[in-house]
Design a protein around this nucleic acid. Structure first.
Lengths: 156, 156
DNA sequence: CAGGCTATTGCAACACGTTGCAGTAAGGGC
DNA sequence: GCCCTTACTGCAACGTGTTGCAATAGCCTG
């Protein structure tokens, strides 16, 4: 994966302006990118890359994974999407996030819960102040034990 | 990757007692596991799995990746090691962590910095209190922009 | 110390993600 | 509308990590 120096994600995405924003960077607007963006425009919240590829293939059976990954890099650079990593390290894409948020991921059952901005902001600001490190909330995944799994471990 | 319900990592590892701890769980102590543990015993701090496999092969050329991954699962269950994920989702193993700690990972240059317990504990305790979710500091990776990369982005 | 149960191994196959390369095509300039 | 530059595509190959399966080998019991 490339390093993606993302712009801050906008709170809602103007999908129809993406072609121009791509071109404005000297990049090119291609049918493959149009397919992916049309799929993303219908997705809400969290998607995995394999789901995206699947849906792209419904529209365009020749869709190639590497092209999708490369286009996702471009879109992340534009701030249209962001990604974090699930407990197994796989990408979780955040599409058109209503609000930036992180994730709580249970290492036992794999369940995911959103972590709203408010609950992390003090922490992330302290890191910025003390360590001069600007953390990305969208990329933040906190791994641990959810309530349900903790109860069942305790009763073992 | 399997879910690994880890014991809290001990602050220092008694490597010579690992065989008995493994057997105490009804698991078996094998030459392959001995090789891996002897490699881990000489590792400090952070290692990647491919580094481990490489070093194991120096001692035992027949070392198989899947066996290493499976043994790492066992050792993580024992709390001997823990792991988090780098910016590309690859595993970062924490061997014999002197103190539990998280990581700050720069999404642009890939540099890593330790995040001491003290700076995250308020945050993690709040999550536990408010959401009944017991977070694992060792697994916490905060992605963002380090000081150096932020400066260079700003000057673009 | 022989026998049996079963955890473990090694292999092959798979899924995810990245990268190098040769050919294609977007889109700006004329 | 044509040409030219070069971004992009598709492919193949690779690295990381997981999983199913048959064969092997710990370790417990008698």
């Amino acid at each position: 994966m490339n390093a993606r120096a993302a712009e801050p994600p906008s709170s809602s995405v103007a999908w129809d302006r993406i072609p121009d924003r791509v071109r404005a960077r000297g990049l090119r607007w291609t049918p493959q990118r149009a397919t992916l963006v049309s799929v993303l425009a219908q997705a809400e919240g969290h998607v995995t890359v394999s789901q995206l590829i699947e849906r792209c293939r419904e529209l365009e059976p020749d869709t190639t994974p590497s092209t999708v990954y490369r286009t996702l890099d471009v879109l992340e650079t534009l701030g249209v999407i962001s990604h974090s990593h699930g407990r197994d390290g796989r990408q979780i894409l955040h599409v058109r996030p209503a609000r930036a948020h992180g994730h709580l991921i249970c290492s036992t059952c794999g369940s995911e819960e959103d972590l709203p901005s408010a609950e992390a902001s003090t922490f992330l600001h302290a890191i910025q102040r003390d360590r001069d490190f600007v953390a990305s909330l969208d990329h933040l995944s906190v791994t641990g034990l959810c309530h349900a799994c903790r109860s069942s471990v305790a009763s073992d």
